[in-house]
Nucleic acid binder design. Structure first.
Length: 987
RNA sequence: GCCGAAGUGGCGGAAUUGGUAGACGCACCGGAUUCAAAAUCCGGCGGGGGCAACUCCGUGUGGGUUCGAGUCCCACCUUCGGCACCA
């Protein structure tokens, strides 16, 4: 009689056997799946392994921050769960694991804020989140659960780090990979390098000697003549994991340095929004730039080895590929050497190298600019070339803010200002071009192709981080140079003629034809002559000439920098390294356990000049000192960044218990690559780039079988939510918000509230825990609703109204299958023809939709079919079976229950249970064609698919829908039949 | 500024390679059932005109290609995402 109990009463009774008691039923199946380990996967060599086609479906694993999950989080997990269940039903051996990214900033910040030890808080958070995931009926193989902060996991993270430490990227190696591709450059053991240096087969390069000289020692000619410390200095310059003094992103608020990828454009930490400062520090680095080309090229490579003799290509959203391409930022151009002249004598004093992508505009270079940190203008550096006084002819505008200053003072002042504003604020960015500042350095350089003497400026629009930290300025063809030249009255010389179609522009930055450069019809003997050549040709010719004259060479520059890999925090993987009293680092035995420390807090402050002091420095001496080969070493006190563990976790899932290797090679080559990887787009240039890099190193060293880890990547959209604030700006819990028409008001007080749109989150008080929604509406309902809200990749706002529609759908499914007395309505009888066709169409539609992760339209198809069944006294068994199978990945609990109640057994959990539409008579013999008369659609006609044209003509012209639009005589001028598309009649 | 994606009812969104736009859901309206409500079931639901059969207009704006355009091409407007002095 009453359905009220179902939706509002918490303890559902057993009085009415026919009611859809979702709470009891969902709990029962949830427990059944866990107890029976229904979703266990077996790899090669494991009990129950069958050599069926595999499918590896992976979610980006969560970090355990203690607020638990809200209903926005599981969107991607539900999607992968549906895909997992679907693939299993199709007979695939599916690996679908879950774990926790428990080391790193997020977990540690949570612990600090709640004043607990991270080891404690992460365990508690993991418990809670695991419970939430299980509540949602997600079909993970929990036997494979991992956690990156557990010793048996991070000892292998350390092991992989040592692989990076003990190898280098040899750019000279040409090799063939598993797919028969010829690759240039490869990671090889550092030991090989040591051997060839020791045997004399390879000699120390100028760069090698430079390293030793930079350290203040004399370089000898041979490797054997160097002591251990100096040999290690040379090797450090090769290793993929190396130490270097670099300008880092120092974040005193978090007490640590951060990678470029972890700092926003505003100069705030991606995690916690703390101010970040630039500061030189000696850090561990990973040489990701060596892999820049391969990371770029493999995004679009057509043949990547799959480790099983086949190949694959990345199936990633174009958006993410693009972000990675931009982040790597490869640009082709040339390095050109300018002579720096003594301002008095005009004789050669030193050289200044610039990078340019437009060598064809060299003749238009009318001045140069170096970054404020450039050695040429850094007092005390070897190449310091700033004269003591301004020349008489120097305009005041070139002398900086106060023209009365001496030249060195003016420069120093400018450099000091530049140093404090490394990061531009959002406001400053608006102004961009207008706001160019700079100071003349007093230095002149000679343009190598024209011989002209040009002034060298210091300006902060040139950054030391990119290229050579200095540029040749071509104001006629570069917007920034143009703005600078306009401000300081520098000459502007056009050297590229735009194509005729281009309107008049003062500063043309595109391609065209070279002009005002030597050469052309008149011609002269300048070796750099390029006049009249189109841009591409001009570039080629002038670069060749530069190389011939030894004043430049073709060059490629990357935006990508090496990965700053150390953090001054506690909650991370300790480096398995120790430092010898002579300063070099060696590897230590594994594992290096994180020492238990009550006082784990990093030194956090607002002062950018705080001393850097990693918490591990406060560990007991027994930990910080280690004896190796009879000598005492200091342990490395930094820890790895939060990304280290997630760089390879997908490999550990394949073989999580292995204590003799990070992953068994047979199992690895069976399950890799990951077939479907679902997660948010926020990791585009962080985790997704870092893990590709590690994977390539492991591939080069022969530890994994595929050059790329993730075949198909899918970014699910967020679930957004409205947040409400009262007049004080305090967030009001959405459960206390009511609507007066469209106006949000506070429950109880009736006060009007402000509405804002955005992310769901604890601090906005607009997130609901999945348990709360699941308990009120049912987990199946919640799952269906989240998938129905729109395309998976799109963000969509949560609303409590829509979810009732999904609950109604499931209740209607239930009533279609079960009578009020609790009897199954299923009968062994043939399906009525029209319904049979509808079923077949639905099978095709739902299969295609799930395969393409279009769950919203799949659900729409099922609702449509289910609506056909409403009111029927009984349902044909074949229809019932297929309908439940189609619904079961999406709403697993209710379908399991109905499957049992209909007497079908545990069928929908079995392999090869998915309806096979390819074996059915899918091709409809009849096709519906729209018919146009005189350009207007007048109806549709059903005609057989394969039939002679004249028969169609007769059928169409004789059809009721068409006949009445034809003239009395029935005469037609033209009859056009587009097979399978449309009939067009002109009368 | 540069690069990319997208603009469809009151709302979320459907619409194979160009082929009857608005599937499905929400909200809303009418009816049945009920003492009443909830729930359920039946029906309606882009706009204008018509008693009706029907008809005209409709997928951000303006052009174009085509028998036929939400879909393809050109220009513009708007929104969102990414990058941002990258030489």
């Amino acid at each position: 009689m009453s359905q009220q109990a179902v939706s509002t009463t918490k303890s559902a009774s057993n009085q009415r056997p026919g009611a859809y008691e979702f709470r009891e039923l969902e709990r029962r199946w949830r427990e059944f799946w866990l107890k029976e380990k229904t979703h266990r996967a077996a790899g090669p060599g494991e009990p129950g392994f069958e050599d069926r086609p595999k499918c590896y479906i992976l979610d980006m694993f969560p970090y355990p921050s203690g607020d638990g999950l809200h209903i926005g989080h599981p969107k991607g997990y539900i999607a992968s769960d549906i895909y997992n269940r679907y693939k299993r039903m199709q007979g695939f051996n599916v690996l679908h694991p879950m774990g926790f990214d428990s080391f790193g900033l997020p977990a540690e910040q949570y612990a600090i804020e709640h004043n607990v030890h991270p080891a404690m808080s992460t365990d508690e958070c993991i418990e809670r989140i695991r419970g939430q995931l299980q509540f949602l009926g997600l079909s993970y193989d929990w036997d494979r659960e991992i956690s990156t902060s557990k010793e048996d996991y991070y000892c292998w993270t350390q092991w992989i780090f040592l692989q990076l430490f003990q190898c280098w990227f040899d750019p000279e190696v040409t090799w063939e990979d598993g797919a028969g591709r010829t690759l240039q450059g490869r990671a090889v053991p550092i030991e090989q390098l040591v051997r060839s240096l020791a045997s004399g087969e390879r000699e120390l390069t100028a760069a090698d000697r430079q390293v030793i000289e930079d350290a203040g020692a004399d370089a000898t000619d041979s490797w054997a003549g160097l002591n251990r410390a100096r040999q290690e200095l040379v090797l450090n310059n090769y290793r993929l994991a190396y130490q270097k003094e670099v300008t880092v992103n120092w974040c005193p608020g978090l007490g640590t340095v951060l990678a470029n990828e972890e700092v926003t454009a505003e100069g705030l930490s991606e995690r916690g929004n703390c101010q970040v400062y630039r500061r030189p520090l000696k850090q561990w680095m990973l040489r990701i730039t060596d892999y820049a080309d391969r990371l770029l090229e493999d995004l679009d490579a057509e043949r990547l080895a799959d480790g099983k003799g086949g190949t694959f290509a990345l199936d990633w959203p174009e958006q993410i590929k693009l972000m990675q391409r931009n982040w790597i930022g490869r640009s082709h151009g040339a390095n050109v050497v300018f002579e720096v002249l003594d301002p008095q004598t005009h004789q050669l004093k030193s050289r200044l190298e610039v990078f340019t992508t437009r060598p064809d505009t060299l003749f238009g270079a009318t001045f140069m600019v170096v970054a404020p940190q450039h050695p040429l203008v850094t007092a005390g550096s070897d190449s310091y070339a700033v004269p003591e006084t301004w020349t008489d002819s120097t305009p005041d505008a070139w002398k900086g803010e106060s023209p009365s200053d001496g030249i060195r003072e003016a420069l120093g002042r400018y450099q000091a200002t530049a140093a404090t504003s490394n990061f531009r604020t959002a406001d400053a960015k608006q102004e961009d071009d207008k706001d160019k500042t700079g100071v003349f350095s007093g230095i002149f350089a000679r343009n190598p192709v024209s011989g002209t003497e040009i002034p060298v400026f210091v300006a902060d629009y040139v950054s030391m981080d990119y290229g050579t930290g200095s540029i040749m300025a071509v104001p006629a063809h570069d917007d920034r140079d143009y703005a600078f030249a306009s401000k300081y009255g520098l000459p502007i010389m056009k050297v590229v003629d735009p194509p005729a179609s281009t309107g008049k522009v003062e500063c043309y930055t595109g391609d065209g034809t070279s002009i005002n450069s030597p050469g052309g019809v008149g011609g002269d003997q300048n070796p750099f002559a390029i006049t009249d050549l189109p841009t591409a040709e001009a570039k080629g010719k002038i670069v060749a000439a530069l190389e011939k004259e030894r004043v430049g060479k073709s060059a490629i520059t990357y935006r990508l920098h090496d990965w700053i890999f150390s953090r001054q925090r506690y909650w991370g993987e300790p480096f398995p390294l120790a430092t010898h009293p002579d300063g070099f680092s060696v590897e230590t035995d594994l594992p290096v356990l994180l020492p238990e420390m009550a006082d784990f807090q990093p030194l956090m402050s607002d002062d950018p000049d705080t001393p850097v002091s990693p918490p591990l420095g406060r560990a007991e001496r027994s930990w910080t000192r280690v004896e190796i080969g009879g000598e005492e070493y200091d342990r490395e006190l930094n820890v790895m960044p939060q990304w280290a563990g997630s760089c390879w976790y997908f490999l550990r899932f394949i073989d999580p218990q292995n204590d003799s290797a990070f992953c068994d090679t047979t199992k690895e080559s069976y399950f890799m690559p990951v077939d479907l990887y679902i997660g948010g787009a926020e990791h585009a240039v962080l985790h997704l780039l870092y893990s590709r890099f590690w994977h390539k190193v492991l591939y080069d060293l022969g530890h994994v079988s595929t050059p790329e880890p993730f075949k198909k990547l899918f970014n699910q959209g967020m679930i957004t939510a409205d947040a409400f604030t009262d007049e004080r700006g305090v967030y009001i819990d959405i459960r206390d918000v009511e609507f007066d028409g469209d106006t949000p008001v506070q429950r109880g007080t009736g006060k009007e509230l402000n509405r804002s749109r955005g992310k769901m989150g604890k601090r906005y008080k607009n997130g609901l825990p999945p348990e709360e929604v699941g308990d009120e509406y049912g987990v199946d309902t919640l799952r269906l609703y989240e998938m129905y809200m729109g395309p998976l990749e799109q963000s969509a706002p949560w609303s409590m109204e829509g979810i009732r529609g999904m609950q109604r759908f499931l209740q209607r499914v239930w009533r279609n299958f079960i009578t009020q007395d609790g009897q199954a309505k299923v009968k062994a009888e043939p399906i009525e023809d029209a319904l049979g066709k509808k079923l077949q169409r639905t099978i095709v539609r739902v299969t295609d939709d799930i395969e393409g992760l279009r769950f919203n339209t799949a659900i729409a198809g099922l609702i449509e079919l289910n609506n056909e069944l409403v009111g029927a006294d009984e349902i044909p068994e074949e229809l019932a079976r297929n309908f439940l199978l189609l619904l079961s990945p999406l709403a697993p609990h209710i379908t399991e229950e109905l499957w049992m109640r209909c007497g079908f057994g545990h069928g929908n959990l079995a392999y090869q249970a998915w309806p096979k539409h390819d074996e059915m008579a899918l091709v409809e013999e009849m096709i519906t064609l729209p018919v146009q008369v005189n350009g207007k659609v007048r109806g549709t006609v059903e005609v057989p698919v394969e039939i002679e044209e004249h028969v169609v003509r007769e059928l169409v012209l004789g059809h009721e829908n068409v006949k009445r639009f034809l003239p009395e005589s029935g005469e037609v001028h033209r009859f056009i039949l587009v097979p399978g598309k449309i009939v067009n009649i002109v009368v």
